[in-house]
Amino acid sequence: MNIQEYISSGIVESYVLGLTDQEERAEFERMCAAHAEVRKARELFELSIEEFAISNAVNPSKNTKSKIFADIEIENQELNTQRHGNDTNPLYVASDDSRKASVVVSRTGWQRYLAAASIVLLIASTALNFILFSRYKNYSNRYSILLAQQTELAKNNDVMRTKLYTYENTLTMLKDPDMAIIKMPGTNVPSSPDSNSVATVYWNNKSKDVYLLVNNLPQPASDKQYQLWAIVDGQPVDAGIFDLPTISGVVRMKNMPRAQVFAVTLEKRGGSVTPQGPMYVLGKVS
């Protein structure tokens, strides 16, 4: 087979359109290298195919190009990472300006991705912070309220315990069989400013301790105080001053070894040596 026959056998077209097997391909490449005519024939057919394809071009959709370039940008970025990782043995040597330019281009691409990613992260983080902060505020408020309620309850509890303790003490005292009860009604005092006034003295016959229960006494002016007196052999003896108790209970007064009568007068604040003010109530020791 001479060269011309070989060229016109259809091998050129088969090779260009990719329809040859490996053996035919290798042979054709050998022939091309050896004979300029074969090369020429190949180029002619290649050009006619190329021109035909270009004249029959069907444009792809518009966004295809940007998709391809985005993918290539990512590949370049990976390539650069590899390049930086192998500085001692670089895969590619930047030898001319165009290569340098492409490296710069891909670096700015890399930075764009990083910038975009960091903005996304920033927005996400801000949103998260906002959510967490409003939650924190909510819980913080609830905690404050609970804390206030707890404090209030603890205070109430203290008050209740004190009251209970006082009542228990009072009860114990009253149950004592040695306790004498001296009732002091206002009606015993014709000159009492308030005939409804009532107070009671509890006097222990053994210990001689004196306790006072205010049943009903008017609220005194702020510069005045009530004073309990024991009348011993016709002489008033100071048994102690007292305010109207804030919690109803029994107030312990001065120990009194002897007495025939108990009475309450309203004196100046701090008390008097001898009764000066009006007498409110009086009771005789039976």
Partner: peptide, 27 residues
């Protein structure tokens, strides 16, 4: 030569000139 240098401008040129022709073949 430019493509082997990974020149993206040359690649853009390649796309602009041949994408339609290749798309025709693919279609």
């Amino acid at each position: 030569a430019l493509l082997k240098d990974r020149d993206s401008k040359a690649f853009g040129y390649l796309y602009d000139h041949y994408s339609g022709a290749l798309n025709n073949i693919i279609l």
